Simulated scan of single mutants.
Amino acid sequence: MFTTAWTASPQLPSEGFTPNWSREGFWRQSLRQTVTPTASGGRIRVRLSHTYGTSPLRIAGATIARTTTGAGIAPGSLRRLRFGGADEAVVPARGQTVSDPAELPVTAGEPLTVTLYFATATGPTTFHAQAFTHSHRGDGDLLDHTDGTRFDAVTESWYVLSAVEVDAHRTDGIALLGDSITDGFGSTPGAGRRWSDALARRTARPVLNAGIGGNLLLNDSAWYGERAVHRLRRDVLDHHGVNTLVVLLGLNDIGFSEINEQPTYKPAPIVEAAELIAGHRELLRQARGLRVIGATLLPFAGSDHWGEHAARVSREVNTWTRESGEYDTVVDLGRLLADPADPERLHPAYDFGDHLHPQDKGYEVMAEAVAAVL
Rank of each mutant, 00 (worst) to 15 (best):
F2I: 01
F2N: 00
T3L: 03
W6T: 07
Q11C: 15
L12K: 10
S14F: 02
E15V: 09
G16F: 07
G16M: 09
F17Y: 14
S22Y: 06
R23D: 05
R32C: 09
Q33W: 01
T36D: 02
A39W: 00
R45E: 02
V46A: 04
R47S: 11
R47D: 05
S49P: 15
S49K: 04
Y52R: 08
P56K: 04
R58P: 14
A65S: 12
R80L: 08
G85Y: 07
G85V: 15
G85Q: 09
G85L: 12
A89W: 08
V90W: 09
V91Y: 00
A93H: 07
A93E: 14
Q96V: 15
T97E: 10
E103N: 15
P105V: 03
V106D: 05
G109S: 07
L116K: 12
A121M: 04
P124H: 02
F127Q: 03
F132P: 12
H136P: 14
R137H: 11
T146C: 12
D147K: 04
D147H: 05
D147R: 07
T149W: 00
F151H: 06
F151V: 06
F151T: 01
D152S: 08
A153I: 02
Y159G: 01
L161P: 00
S162L: 07
V164W: 00
E165W: 00
L177Y: 03
L177D: 10
L177A: 10
T182S: 13
G186E: 11
G190V: 15
A191N: 04
W195A: 00
S196F: 03
L199W: 06
A200G: 02
T203W: 06
G211I: 02
G214T: 04
L217H: 08
N219Y: 08
E226C: 15
V229E: 02
H230C: 09
R233F: 05
H239K: 09
V242F: 06
L245K: 10
G250L: 04
L251H: 03
N252W: 01
I259M: 08
N260G: 10
N260Y: 04
E261M: 09
Q262V: 09
K266P: 06
P267A: 00
A274D: 15
H280E: 11
H280F: 07
R288M: 03
G289A: 11
A295E: 03
T296Y: 10
A301N: 10
H309N: 15
R312F: 00
R312A: 12
S314P: 02
E316M: 11
E316N: 05
N318W: 05
T319D: 13
R322L: 09
R322D: 13
D332F: 04
R335M: 11
A338L: 04
D339H: 01
D351S: 05
G353F: 02
H355M: 07
H355T: 15
H357T: 14
Q359I: 08
Q359M: 05
A371F: 00
V373T: 07
L374D: 03
L374N: 01
